[in-house]
Amino acid sequence: MIGRRGSKEEMKMTEGKQITLVSVRGPYGDEAPFTLIRLAHAAKEKGITVNFFNYLDSTLIGNGNQAPKEYPSVGKLFSDVLKKGLKNPKADAIACIKCTESRGVTKTQTEGVVIGGLYDLAEWIAESDKTILLG
């Protein structure tokens, strides 16, 4: 159910945990970014802190001003999940600087996306309870 918070028992088991979601594919090539965002909402509803690391083409997911005519804007969906994460549980996002520079999207990332690098990902992997790569 959309927007459902986990039960008290579920929250007890998952609250305070941290998941890192790495992605590498662009926003509209396949459905993976939608799954990524849905997964992040579900994790946050269970009290889990979410770290997005956008690598390679997925740095376009967090780019602002996306206006697809026939699809939902992945940029808007991504921005919403970040905004919802201002309080606990947090949702943070880092975009790889080498990737954003090469695609010309460093300065146009949506609010909440921090420009960083692979050293940040290494730290997130070390800190997180789980790290997965999806899309």
Binding site: V24, Y55, L56, K98, G117, L118, Y119, L121, A122, E123, I125, A126
Partner: peptide
């Protein structure tokens, strides 16, 4: 992309 991803891991042990 995988090569720098692996190469930077040692920075976080």
């Amino acid at each position: 992309g995988a090569i720098p991803l692996a190469a930077t891991q040692s920075a976080a042990d």
